[in-house]
Amino acid sequence: MPEGHSVHRIARQFSLHFVGRPVAVSSPQGRFSAGAEKLDGHTMVDALAVGKQMFLEFDHGLWLRVHLGLYGAWDFAGDITADATVASAGGRMGQTNQRGTVAELVTGHDLVVPGAAGSRGENEASLHSIGAPRRTRLRMSESERQGEDIEEFPPPPIGQVRVRLLTTDAVADLRGPTACEVQTPDEVAVSIGKLGPDPLVGDPAEGEERFVAAVRKKATPIGLLLMDQSVVSGIGNVYRAELLFRARLDPYTPGKLVPEEVVRNLWRDWVHLLSIGVETGQMMTMDGLEGEAYVAALASRDDRHWVYHREGQPCRVCGTHITMAMAAARKLYWCPNCQR
């Protein structure tokens, strides 16, 4: 299931290529035909990610709410960027009006971009021509994969496409979501109101206070609370394991018994890791990596995580074998020596 950084990156793809443009909305599969009819022809005015959910606003006041769940994915094609986050966070894009022309991206900082990422990571993407619009395909879900360049635009829908969003230059096809529905502003407010704080939405300091209050009043183990989207938005299995290890915190400690300062540091570390995830497209949870080690970590999760997916392997700190157990039907990884 995509974690918070992936959904924010998808929302930024929409902000860059769809917001401010009229959108033709259809349901090639047919299951969203009624909803598509309500949105068809209207201009998208906002794209908002909150945790693992995304909300697309249109100019007549209706929104499209999407939760990708375990199997959902967005496929983008057309004049799109390999990394909309880079393009929207300080890149200066010079492009012509001719569809298919590769534009030059000038950034204010150096980028470390692997020529080709590995095949084992949870968010591997080939980001050649990073930031440059090109007539290509890009799949965004739990992982990001850039596909082949396209010869015709728009390309025909492939597979069971629940909803297609089409502008003059870009198309986004949604497959397999857990939720895909049209909502009114009041319904959107209710949906967002059920979610815990997201560091990239609203005031992070206010989010910290909400998170601390929610954790400190519950007897539920902290390892489960971090996965509870009503407590904090966006954390999934990978970030849960890594945050707990970085805090040297036993995942079975009841929330109310976790010292307040430790809870606050968990939130601040989530702010830190989420920002890195949005910037790089990877759940990079080991700090201090440089040079070849950093490039290797971008390419493979085996080189960028402390404990996740490392059951039976020696802890990178103490050498104790990493343990795995099932917690609420999800795999929980931790070091029984460092986290006690």
Rank of each mutant, 00 (worst) to 15 (best):
A103N: 13
E124G: 12
V106P: 00
E57N: 10
E57F: 01
A125N: 11
A47C: 07
G61D: 06
G30Y: 02
N123M: 08
G69N: 07
Y71A: 14
Q95A: 12
L64Q: 05
R31P: 02
H128C: 03
G78W: 04
E151K: 13
W74I: 11
T107N: 09
I150P: 03
T43F: 00
D110I: 01
L39V: 03
E37C: 02
A77Y: 04
S26M: 05
M93F: 07
H67C: 11
T96H: 14
Q98N: 13
E151I: 11
V45S: 04
S126K: 03
S33H: 06
K52G: 07
A77M: 06
A103V: 08
A103K: 03
H128D: 07
G41N: 10
K38W: 04
E144S: 13
E142V: 14
L105D: 06
G131S: 06
D83T: 06
A49L: 01
D83I: 04
R145N: 07
W63A: 11
V102L: 14
L64I: 09
G131M: 06
L64D: 02
L62P: 00
L105P: 05
M140Y: 01
R145C: 00
E124Y: 08
A34T: 14
L62C: 04
A49H: 05
L70R: 10
M54L: 08
D46E: 15
A87N: 07
S33N: 05
V66P: 01
G51V: 12
G147K: 06
V112R: 11
D59V: 04
Q53T: 15
D110A: 15
V66T: 11
S88R: 09
D46Q: 13
G61H: 06
T107V: 15
E148R: 10
M93P: 01
P133C: 07
M93A: 07
L127Q: 05
L56F: 14
L62K: 09
F58G: 00
A82N: 13
R65Q: 14
P114K: 15
I80G: 08
S33V: 05
R135W: 04
A117L: 06
L105N: 08
F153Q: 03
E151T: 12
T85D: 14
T85I: 14
K38H: 06
N97D: 15
G147Y: 04
A117V: 03
N123A: 13
D79E: 10
R134L: 03
E142N: 13
G115K: 11
K52D: 02
G72I: 13
G78N: 07
P133W: 09
A87P: 05
